[in-house]
């Protein structure tokens, strides 16, 4: 499957928690490419795309964090709102339901990280609609 790995870390709402995680990654020279936080007043989920997901997941887990690795879709489009909108339209018209989405810029392009209800359906639809799927970076 043409997907990429995403790390999710459970965050208690505790002072210094996020900073501890970032410091740990920095110390190991792991680069963060994209981050997204979903939160309530009590806890949150930090989702990360880094330069080395497996290493980052092991590291953070060893530091006592609850870490989850899962597959998400990464779609590369032109860095403008029109292209963003077209990609989302193409997916939703094709019957893909999106659980969450976040974006980042890389190499002059916009990358959409998408967690669909079903990866298989989403991948198929993305291919049918001619969207560019990314499978990791060099």
């Amino acid at each position: 499957m043409k997907t990429i790995k995403q790390i999710s870390i459970f965050l208690e709402n505790q002072r210094g928690k996020l900073s501890d995680i970032l410091t740990a990654l920095k110390d190991q020279n792991i680069e963060i490419q994209a981050a997204s936080v979903a939160d309530t007043t009590e806890y949150g989920i930090l989702r990360l795309i880094t330069s080395d997901q497996v290493k980052a997941a092991r590291l953070l887990s060893a530091k006592g964090n609850l870490v989850n690795l899962n597959e998400v879709l990464a779609i590369q489009v032109e860095p403008d709102t029109a292209a963003f909108a077209d990609a989302v339209d193409a997916l939703t018209n094709g019957g893909v339901s999106i659980s969450y989405l976040y974006t980042f810029h890389k190499d002059g392009k916009l990358v959409l990280i998408i967690r669909p209800a079903s990866l298989e359906i989403a991948e198929r639809v993305a291919k049918e609609k001619g969207l560019t799927l990314i499978q990791g970076w060099e």
């Binding site: 459970f10 659980s99 967690r115």
Partner: peptide
């Protein structure tokens, strides 16, 4: 929690 998840819902 036993494990983390990416699924906030």
């Amino acid at each position: 929690l036993a494990q983390a998840t990416d699924d906030f819902g």
